[in-house]
Amino acid sequence: MKTTKKPIATETNQLEKTIGRIMRWGVTLAIIIMVIGLLAFLLHGGLGYPNNYYVHSFKELFSGLAEQKPYSIMMLGIFILILTPVLRVVASIYSFYREHDWLYVVITALVLLILIASFILGIYFRR
């Protein structure tokens, strides 16, 4: 008995729909978390940190989340919002790989490397 492979076009369409759902869910989740942070801000009457304070590490972010500080909650929403298109780039690499479109695999991988480098440089050169 032979197994039939799905045509590449059908598989690509399914992957594009999945990527679309990931993008929608990522943005929706980020919005929900930001609204929760806004409500916490309105209920607490402040951000939970002194003025002009910024979270500088994941440790501080998670510590603030454990203490339910509104600023940390909103930062988590922003973090998820930033990671959503990065996940889209990763999914695109997989999609191009499945299509055997090596030029776009390389180009998209370079885009991912640039994104990762910008995150790393942002960590090392923050003020």
Results as ranks from 00 to 15, higher is better:
residue 28 T to A: 15
residue 2 K to D: 08
residue 65 L to S: 05
residue 61 L to W: 05
residue 85 P to W: 02
residue 93 I to H: 02
residue 25 W to I: 15
residue 84 T to V: 08
residue 55 V to A: 03
residue 54 Y to C: 09
residue 39 L to R: 06
residue 108 T to P: 07
residue 20 G to Q: 00
residue 60 E to V: 09
residue 29 L to E: 04
residue 104 Y to F: 11
residue 90 V to D: 01
residue 3 T to F: 00
residue 70 P to L: 08
residue 95 S to F: 06
residue 60 E to R: 01
residue 62 F to P: 12
residue 18 T to Y: 09
residue 37 G to N: 04
residue 30 A to G: 11
residue 59 K to Q: 13
residue 38 L to K: 14
residue 64 G to W: 06
residue 13 N to V: 12
residue 63 S to W: 02
residue 5 K to V: 10
residue 49 Y to D: 05
residue 6 K to N: 01
residue 37 G to F: 05
residue 42 L to I: 13
residue 14 Q to C: 05
residue 102 W to F: 06
residue 97 Y to D: 08
residue 45 G to H: 07
residue 58 F to W: 01
residue 94 Y to Q: 12
residue 47 L to F: 12
residue 48 G to M: 04
residue 16 E to C: 11
residue 88 R to G: 03
residue 23 M to S: 09
residue 55 V to N: 10
residue 56 H to L: 05
residue 90 V to A: 07
residue 4 T to K: 00
residue 83 L to Q: 10
residue 9 A to I: 12
residue 124 Y to F: 04
residue 100 H to F: 09
residue 100 H to R: 13
residue 125 F to C: 03
residue 115 L to F: 10
residue 74 M to E: 08
residue 57 S to E: 13
residue 31 I to F: 11
residue 109 A to G: 12
residue 114 I to T: 13
residue 127 R to D: 14
residue 38 L to T: 15
residue 85 P to E: 03
residue 35 V to M: 12
residue 123 I to D: 04
residue 61 L to A: 09
residue 63 S to N: 15
